[in-house]
Design a protein around this nucleic acid. Structure first.
Lengths: 195, 195
DNA sequence: GTCTATATGACGATAGAC
DNA sequence: GTCTATCGTCATATAGAC
């Protein structure tokens, strides 16, 4: 309400999350530090400890947010689609889009080496994402062992694609997200059909 | 020759490389520190600077070693094979085997975020590896654009498989390297055939 | 809810003695 | 070729004042 510094009256938690997200996007989840997040939020290094028990707790919040964001993207993109092969293709394409367009969230969700067991909300959010592709795989392959294998293969493919598109200096799939997306979709269909 | 401490007479370079490799295997390439490598080699934190200009220089040496090791594995496994689809399948399987059996080297080669441009030997060693699968893709797809796309897809698949097998706590492909290897081989063939 | 102050401990890198 | 000593920087986390 008043015009004095905003962060000092209940908004710090959000300010820290924003700063942390920015940081993770710039330097990677591994090189994220709570101190620098505090610095960017304009508070002292000890202030965050009123809101987060430890460094990893803040990271876990961001990571869970990422999984929920991806899940929402998936729900939207898959609305009305019932063919499991198409679901798998679209899900993989959405994954790549998420990785590129929400790069900071993606870093937090897929590259922070934190002990997920300690943060149940993180595991739950993650599971809601994987359930979608696991279900599609189960419908494509009645045999449970085969379903798991196919789901793992599709998961590996999208994960590898995202890593290659984002981090490979050779840029083997070019600079265009649209092109890379098509390539991933094509590869996913090839994998599902030939498996 | 004499029985006094060994490292102090020309062996430090090797001792540091061994210690660094061990460290990278335990804590990941990102959390590697030159100081701790020195500690493990039994010397002071400043001693390494006589052999390596900076932290990343040691890391680059290990990473290049990893690429050369993988290249040697590929040469052996591919000896006498001429069918490009089989070359791609075998190369992917060998990549996974390398990632698991030489985990420390793999970490250094594929997870150290160093500026590769600054270490030419690293780029050369890496290129010798990718040439093998790039050539196979070129023989599978005469059209250059398609060859690049297929090579990128196969590269993504093997990279994602290795990451999933090594780091995914869900262990979707089980604990057995042999099983995972077969799954990757199968997926690679499916990808090549259906592309 | 945020502050200052502090304990504790890394790290990268350099200078100069031996 | 390795040492000691040191600088500067950064981090996580706690205690207690305001």
């Amino acid at each position: 309400m008043t015009t004095h510094d905003s962060y000092h009256h209940g908004d710090l938690r959000n300010a820290l999350e924003r700063a942390a997200l920015e940081l993770v996007g710039e330097k990677g989840a591994d090189n994220f530090s709570l101190s620098e997040a505090a610095r960017r939020a304009g508070v002292s290094p000890s202030a965050p400890y009123k809101h987060f028990a430890e460094r990893d707790a803040l990271l876990a919040v961001i990571a869970a947010k990422g999984h929920r964001f991806l899940h929402a993207m998936l729900r939207t993109a898959l609305a009305g689609e019932s063919d499991p092969a198409q679901i798998m293709r679209i899900a993989n394409e959405v994954f790549l889009t998420f990785a590129v367009e929400q790069h900071a969230l993606y870093e937090a969700s897929y590259y922070s080496r934190i002990d997920a067991e300690r943060y149940p909300e993180l595991m739950i959010a993650y599971k809601r994402v994987t359930d979608i592709t696991d279900d599609a795989a189960a419908r494509l392959r009645p045999d449970p062992a085969e379903a798991i294998g196919l789901a793992a293969a599709c998961g590996s493919l999208r994960y590898g694609f995202a890593a290659t598109f984002l981090f490979d200096r050779e840029k083997p799939m070019g600079e265009s997200l649209v092109t890379a997306r098509d390539q991933l979709g094509r590869a996913t269909i090839a994998l599902v059909n030939g498996y």
